[in-house]
Amino acid sequence: MIEFHLDGRSGVAPYMQLIHQVRQALRLGLLRVGDQLPKVKDVAAGLAINPNTVLKAYRELEYEGLAAARPGIGTFVTGTLDGGSLAAHGPLRRDLQRWLAKARRAGLDEESIEALFVSTFRSAGEEEIA
């Protein structure tokens, strides 16, 4: 059974943090299909947050097809995140390799490439949310 934690200062809504942690656990293999997620009241009691917040996160996961609630028993993992089958993303990988070559030819060193990538990645993510 995984355990949740909350970062009160991250600016991310608590329910989103819970969803992220479930997805991360799925990617890392800490959660597999059929595993039970912690009970709503236990999460609420452990983190001192509103049970509705936990319910909302679990419902969102259900909507994404990652979990399903069994009334009276609990919520169970039903889906996976294909973080491991990178092979399915061959075209994306080739595009990325071409971009990296371009960046090196432009004179960027490794740190600059990483910084460029991270800042673009982050601002793209914010635009999605906003």
Binding site: K41, D42, A44, A45, A48, I49, N50, P51
Partner: peptide, 12 residues
Amino acid sequence: REFLQYLMESVG
């Protein structure tokens, strides 16, 4: 913290 934990447990 402990008080709120207990309160949320009871709510749940």
